[in-house]
């Protein structure tokens, strides 16, 4: 099935918006691992404006925002 990935903020440096083919039982945590983002970045996935747990499974057509917790001061 397909989901649409939207990198937000500094994640845009590492990936572009795109469709991604995934297995139906893929979890958010495994999806993050597969993106090969730098280990130092703590990544959270958001769906419809809400953060989702690493164990969350997607449905066809989900638009998934990929966000890092990185913050400045």
């Amino acid at each position: 099935m397909k989901v649409y990935l939207v990198p937000v903020g500094i994640i845009k440096k590492y990936m572009k918006e795109r469709d991604l083919d995934i297995e139906a039982d893929l979890t958010a945590g495994t999806l993050i691992e597969r993106l090969n983002l730098p280990d130092k970045l703590k990544i959270i996935c958001f769906l419809n404006g809400k953060r989702i747990d690493p164990g969350h499974r997607f449905t066809e057509g989900d638009v998934v925002k990929i966000v890092s917790t990185f913050a400045g001061g």
């Binding site: 970045l41 958001f46 917790t69 400045g72 001061g73």
Partner: peptide
Amino acid sequence: EALASDVMRENGTAANLEGGVVS
């Protein structure tokens, strides 16, 4: 060489403000 330094060197301390808005 730290990733955070690289990010802030490039776009300053507001580099990830957009991510902060989503959070």
